[in-house]
Write a protein that binds this DNA or RNA. Structure first.
Lengths: 230, 230
DNA sequence: TTAATTCTGTAGCCTATGCTACTATTTTTC
DNA sequence: GAAAAATAGTAGCATAGGCTACAGAATTAA
C-alpha cells in the first residue's frame, strides 16, 4: 500500500490532498522508520519532541511498576499515534514505554511545526491545527468514557455495559470484543475468575453466548434492562 | 479587581500583554455576563460554541442520572473554564449542566476564532493556539491521573495515596483535603462508612490525625511505606 | 437560642469479589 | 504431530468493603 493511503489512516491527515500531505511532510521534517518486532521505540521517561504515527504494524505501550513488573497500558494500531499530548506538557515526559509488537513502519513528524510552521498561514496549516485540537478533544472524551467502566459498580453491570457498548458500536447482535479474558478483566479492573464466573451466569440465564472473544447476544431486552438502570 | 488581572487567572491568557488581551478580546467577540447564584449557565445537551471562563465566583457541574438524580461532577473556580474540549467534537455536546454556585461574572469567547482568527498570523494568534493545545494536553494528563485513584485496589491504599499526593502538593505534614467525606468517598469511588472505618484504623495506628478536612500526618514513614509498594 | 440540617463516626450484617489452585481446551512452536 | 504455552472455565474459601441505621457534633438558619 502506498504512503499516502497509509498516512490518511491517521486522524490528523485523513482529509488532506496528496499535495497538502507532501507539503506538510516537508514542513514537519517527516521521516519514516522501520523497526522489527520486540524493538524498543520509546522509553517512559524520554521527552516527546516528535509525533510517532503507526503506518503499518502494531505497537505496545507498557509501564514499569515499582516492583519491576511490566503492566500493559494499551496498544497502537495502524493510524494511531503517540507523543502529541505529551509535547505540550511542562516536562514532555512520555510516561510509558513503547515496543514493537510486530514488524512496524513508523512516521515521525516534528510536533513543534504544528503551531509554528509556514508563517504565511497556509490553508493546510489551519486545518492541521484544527485536527490537532480535535484529536486532543477526542482523547479527553475517550478518557472520560473509559473512566466509566472502571467507575461502574457491580460485575454484571460492567460486563453488560461493555457488551452493550460494543453492540451499539458494531451494530450487530454478534460482536467481537477485540480482547482476550485477561485484557477484558484488566480493562474492567476486576479479577479474571470473578468475571468468568459472572459471564457464565449470564450465559446460563440466556442473556448471551460466547466463544473466545466473539459474543452473541441472545436476549437484548435483558441486557438493556441491566444497563438502563445505572 | 480589574478585568485584565482576572482574565490572566485563566491558563490560556496568563502570559499575554494588556494590548494582546484587548486584541484577542475583540477578535474572539468577547462578552462578559453576570449571573446570580442558582442560575443555570449551560444545559447538558446544549452545544459548545463559546468558551466560558469564570472571572469571579464558582460554578457547579452536574449530570442528571437516568433515575433523575443529580450527580455533581466537579466545580469551576476563578480562572477555570468549560466548553473548549467539547467544541472540537463531532456533536459539540457539553455533557453536563452548569449552574452558578455563587454570584458569578463570566467571560464568553468564540472558540471558533482560536483557529480561524487573524489571517495575518499575528504573534498572539500562535501563542493562543499553543496555549489551547497545552490546556487540552493538561486535561488529558489530569484525567489519566484521576483514573489512578479509581484504579487503585484497597481502601487503605486509596486513602494513603490521596493524602500522600496532597502532602507533596502542599509540601506540609498539615494539609487540607479541600473536600468533605462525601466528596472524598465519591472521588475515591468507595462508600463513605467504609472509608471512615479505614481512616479511623489509620488514626489508631498513629499514621495520622484529622479533623474535618484537615489532616496531620503523624508518621510519614508508615504512610510512604503504604504508598511505595503499589 | 433554639431548631433544623448537614457532617462524621460507629456497629453489624452480608454479599460480591478477590485469590489460589487445578483442569480442560486451544493455539503455537519446533 | 508432539510438546509447550496460552487461554478459559471451575471450585471453594476468606474477606474487604457495601449498605443501613443510628448517634453525636457542628454548622447554618430562623
Amino acid at each position: 500500500m502506498n504512503f499516502l493511503k497509509l498516512i490518511r489512516k491517521n486522524c490528523l491527515f485523513d482529509d488532506f490532498s496528496d499535495k497538502e500531505i507532501n507539503t506538510l511532510f516537508d514542513c514537519m521534517k517527516g521521516r519514516i522508520v522501520m523497526k522489527s518486532k520486540g524493538m524498543l521505540i520509546a522509553k517512559e521517561d524520554s521527552k516527546a519532541e516528535e509525533i510517532c504515527i503507526v503506518l503499518e504494524g502494531t505497537l505496545l505501550k507498557f509501564i514499569t511498576k515499582l516492583n519491576g513488573e511490566k503492566e500493559p497500558v494499551g496498544m497502537l494500531s495502524q493510524g494511531e499515534m503517540f507523543g502529541m499530548e505529551q509535547f505540550y506538557l511542562e516536562d514532555k515526559r512520555i510516561g510509558f514505554n513503547v515496543v514493537a509488537a510486530s514488524e512496524v513502519s513508523l512516521l515521525y513528524l516534528q510536533t513543534n511545526s504544528i503551531v509554528t510552521m509556514c508563517e504565511k498561514a497556509c490553508p493546510c496549516h489551519q486545518k492541521l491545527i484544527h485536527k490537532a485540537l480535535q484529536y486532543l478533544s477526542r482523547r479527553i472524551e475517550d478518557l472520560q468514557n473509559n473512566n466509566n467502566y472502571i467507575t461502574i459498580k457491580g460485575m454484571r453491570l460492567k460486563i453488560a455495559q461493555l457488551i452493550y457498548d460494543k453492540y451499539l458500536e458494531q451494530n450487530s447482535l454478534q460482536l467481537s470484543l477485540g480482547m482476550d479474558r485477561n485484557e477484558m478483566a484488566a480493562f474492567l479492573n476486576v479479577s479474571r475468575p470473578s468475571m468468568s464466573r459472572e459471564m457464565m451466569r449470564m450465559r446460563d440465564e440466556g442473556i448471551m453466548e460466547f466463544w473466545k472473544d466473539k459474543i452473541t447476544i441472545k436476549n437484548i431486552q435483558k441486557l438493556t434492562a441491566i444497563v438502563k438502570r445505572r
